[in-house]
């Protein structure tokens, strides 16, 4: 698939990478049954980093970021998120989940609740925020993703791009310290991709720590401070975006880039 690479204007003044570790993955392995899907993953993410993960289909990108908030369980190695180690201790899992926001490819909004209810549900029931405060917060974030007028509608009445922005706002309402995105734009039409990416860029500009699986190379160039390339369940290469795109080292990376950029 060839794809035009669009470049985005990004204000980098607020982006700062601190030396505090947000996520620390060491020697992590995961199997689905007997299938070795993630192999020896070592990855440290510092606060304020914007990391883009790319790689061919089936390379384990989704599985990796789903392990970070334990939608999937890893079997070997360690994952430490914000100083909390993910283990079978449910208290730790809950703690990590409430600090990590996640945005899915297919939005996964709750269709039986209005947009506002989608946003306030977790603050009210997980954080015990009083309802009116939660609603105020929700409206604030809807404003931020530029759809304040949709608060009373149901997800089914919104366009794909609007739904994905609601999903981002829903994750933000828990005021997470880290945001995970799993191909947030790949179920969207081109015009909608742009509005969602703009929301994500704004988030990056405010200094959010972000881990983003995406094939939007323009976004990677403009926003990411690090690009990670995965294949066959392993991290093959990682580098700063400029180096990554112009001077890839591994043959697999070169092949992947030539396919995705249509060179």
């Amino acid at each position: 698939m060839s794809q035009e690479v669009e470049d985005y204007e990004v204000d980098k003044s607020q982006m700062r990478v601190s030396d505090k570790k947000a996520i620390d993955i060491k020697g992590m392995h995961k199997w689905y049954g007997t299938f070795h899907v993630l192999r020896d993953i070592n990855l440290t993410v510092y606060e304020g980093e914007r990391i883009v993960i790319c790689g061919p289909s089936g390379s384990g990108k989704s599985t990796l970021i789903r392990c970070i908030n334990r939608l999937e369980e890893h079997q070997e190695g360690s994952i430490v998120v914000d100083n909390t180690e993910l283990s079978s201790d449910l208290k730790n899992v809950d703690k990590v989940r409430s600090e990590v926001g996640m945005v899915f490819q297919h939005f996964n909004l709750f269709p039986h609740l209005t947009v506002l209810e989608n946003l306030t549900l977790a603050p009210i029931w997980v954080r015990n925020t009083p309802q009116h405060e939660a609603e105020e917060l929700a409206r604030q974030y809807l404003q931020k993703v530029k759809i304040p007028e949709q608060a009373e509608k149901y997800p089914g009445q919104l366009s794909g791009g609007q739904q994905q922005r609601v999903a981002i706002a829903r994750a933000l309402c828990m005021q997470p310290r880290i945001m995970l995105f799993d191909e947030p734009t790949s179920a969207l039409d081109p015009e909608m991709i742009k509005e969602v990416l703009e929301t994500m860029i704004e988030l990056a500009e405010e200094g959010m720590t972000m881990l983003c699986v995406t094939h939007e190379m323009g976004f990677a160039r403009g926003v990411a401070n690090r690009v990670i390339f995965m294949d066959e369940g392993q991290i093959i290469e990682q580098n700063e975006p400029d180096e990554f795109f112009h001077n890839p080292q591994s043959d697999r990376t070169k092949l992947f880039l030539s396919q995705i950029l249509g060179h």
């Binding site: 908030n69 939608l71 809950d94 989940r97 409430s98 990590v100 926001g101 996640m102 899915f104 297919h106 996964n108 909004l109 709750f110 549900l121 977790a122 029931w125 997980v126 829903r170 994750a171 828990m174």
Partner: peptide, 15 residues
């Protein structure tokens, strides 16, 4: 129900 509904609920930290 799609699996995504369970996952979204988990990801938000609902027990």
């Amino acid at each position: 129900l799609p699996r995504g509904q369970y996952e979204a609920a988990d990801a938000l930290g609902l027990d």
